[in-house]
Amino acid sequence: MRRVALIFLLVIAVLMMVQLQAQERTRIDVSKLGPQVGSRVPDFKLSDQNGTSRTLQSIMGRRGAMLVFIRSADW
């Protein structure tokens, strides 16, 4: 009987841990995401509006570039 109770308690404990894990959430710190100052960003090959293939090099001005990640052009 005691053993059953123990197993029962263990199951409860495991369930509670699962529950806790599901609720645990790391706060997002956007300042830590993505390439940081001084590091080189990954190159890419993406189509622009005209279907022209663009790379990091092709968007550069004479001193560099401003690369803006927008959420969407659609909403």
Binding site: V30, G34, V37, V41, R62, G64, A65, M66, R71
Partner: peptide, 12 residues
């Protein structure tokens, strides 16, 4: 959403 300013070598 975010913005990077890069130098000619692609460094932030």
């Amino acid at each position: 959403p975010g913005t990077f300013i890069l130098d000619r070598q692609g460094r932030v």
